[in-house]
Design a protein around this nucleic acid. Structure first.
Lengths: 146, 146
DNA sequence: GATATATCGTTAGCTGGGCTAACGATATGG
DNA sequence: CCATATCGTTAGCCCAGCTAACGATATATC
């Protein structure tokens, strides 16, 4: 590989990193009324679409340590969005699943949070939207591989 | 606009949001040895390339409130990476600039942090790299507009 | 079957980033 | 000269990360 290519990939990585930081900072501001911030929303999403799931597995999926996930799940539980059930086959682990309220709030909260971003995407040309769509797919595999 | 397009942009926004969360979580792990985490690295970067700059302006650029930036800058100052100077023309404001050590650490820390991401980008095809390059440019303007 | 070991989740305690409210210091305008 | 505005800091709060240590349960070994 040429040295230029390496410099370029470093710049791209740098730029993507910066964009990710600022994107999340912006979106965080949309949270005020939702009662669901990013980590909780993301965890709830996994529970809704991938549940029932154990706390340890959820922590692994979300790339955090179990104590971190304990607190996130406790908050979701106190809000009545998630229920913990003992696993009958293994008393050490729990089975997390979403309540009806949890599923409902996921959709609403997620909508609220990404609404402003979606609005900006709507304003892009079709070509630009295609590029973004492809890029987000590529990025997902890239991130998974890190 | 068709309803399908709106649904699609919401899904894209959703997906980008999720990717951004997981990207930053991954990259945060690369920080251990660097001594510079994301907010400090980002702030230092602005000071290095955009300094001298006032604390308030830096906070605005970084999209955080002044008290938040005060703490970040204090940490950078304690590490000898940044210096505060009184503005001679306006005694209320300060002029932040990077020390030589700050400039050096920025390059090294930034490299370390995005190295694993750059490595994955290197492994992509030329086409995929082009898509990512375009997408990061588009995203930057999108984020700025939110 | 008893005992050692491994695994799951929680608790405790730390660091650090975000915020608002309130304040001192300095500029500026009436 | 005094009222008002602006800049940055301090204080105090919430929440997300982490490690270390622990109780409870499973499992393996003797």
């Amino acid at each position: 590989m040429s040295n230029e290519a390496r410099v370029d990939s470093r710049n791209m990585a740098d730029h993507l990193h910066s964009v990710a930081i600022h994107l999340l900072r912006k979106l965080r501001r949309e949270d005020e009324s939702s009662g669901l911030n990013a980590p909780r929303l993301s965890a709830l999403s996994v529970i809704v679409f991938g549940g029932p799931i154990t706390l340890g597995n959820l922590a692994a999926v979300e790339q955090v340590r179990p104590p971190t996930m304990t607190r996130i799940v406790n908050a979701l539980e106190e809000q009545g969005l998630v229920v913990k059930k003992k696993n009958a086959e293994d008393g050490r682990s729990t089975r997390l699943s979403a309540t009806t309220a949890g599923k409902k709030l996921l959709m609403e909260g997620r909508n609220r949070r990404v609404r402003s971003l979606a609005r900006q995407i709507d304003a892009l040309s079709n070509t630009e939207q295609s590029i973004l769509r492809e890029a987000s797919r590529i990025l997902a595999t890239v991130v998974r591989a890190i």
